[in-house]
Amino acid sequence: MATINPTRDTDRAERIAEVHRLAAQHLSHRAIARRLGIHHTTVGRILSTTTAPERTTDSTTERTTPAPATAPERTTPTTSGDGPAPRLLHPLDPRTIQDLNCLMDPRTGALPAALVRAIRTAADHRRAAMVATAHRLAAEERTTEPPATGRASGRARVAP
């Protein structure tokens, strides 16, 4: 279906420039689409079929407001591209993080196998205790449940 008001060439050029500018800031296609009010597949199509426009303005324009503070340096290593890093339920003590970083093999980035086994064993014991507690609480809840209201038989009453 054709639109009644087609997009002007200047609007299209501005949108393409804005998509490329936001993509240069390493935003996802969906984040760019949300900002611009377009579909994320449109963002992907624009990025794959067009080139970033040349900057025609001088990037050293005078600022009337102070420059924003620079982002703090990243202290955690980036992931290897296997997807997003798992989020922790509770923040780790910074000293613990430093200790783990010191124990990592600098060539492979892996922790020693014995340490990984010890951590997994401790975590498995903790998980087992949590599951046992959940089962115990569920069993207590079943025994203290009040009897169901209504008829004793499971048959539904049929209206005459």
Rank of each mutant, 00 (worst) to 15 (best):
R34I: 02
D105Q: 09
G44R: 13
V116E: 11
A152D: 06
G109W: 04
T65K: 11
I16M: 12
T108D: 12
R157V: 07
M104V: 01
A132M: 15
T42N: 03
H90N: 04
R107S: 10
G81H: 08
A152M: 05
A24Q: 11
E18D: 02
V43K: 03
N101V: 06
E140D: 02
P112V: 05
S153G: 13
G154Q: 05
M1W: 12
S153F: 09
T143Y: 08
T3W: 02
I46K: 14
P66N: 09
Q25L: 13
A24G: 15
P106N: 12
R34F: 01
A134E: 15
P53W: 09
P68N: 10
P86Y: 06
T76D: 05
D11G: 03
H26G: 13
T3D: 12
A148E: 08
A23H: 15
R136M: 15
D82A: 12
A69M: 13
A128L: 02
D58T: 15
T76Y: 07
A23Y: 12
D11Y: 00
R142N: 13
T96Q: 11
A33Q: 08
R151L: 01
H26S: 15
R117P: 10
P91Y: 05
A113W: 13
V158P: 02
I46S: 01
T42W: 06
T70R: 04
I4H: 06
L92R: 15
L137R: 15
G37W: 04
T42I: 09
N5M: 00
T64M: 05
H135K: 09
G83T: 04
I4Y: 00
T108F: 10
L36F: 03
L36C: 08
A17F: 02
P6Q: 09
R8A: 06
A128C: 11
N5S: 04
T51F: 05
L22Q: 00
P91C: 08
E18I: 06
R87M: 04
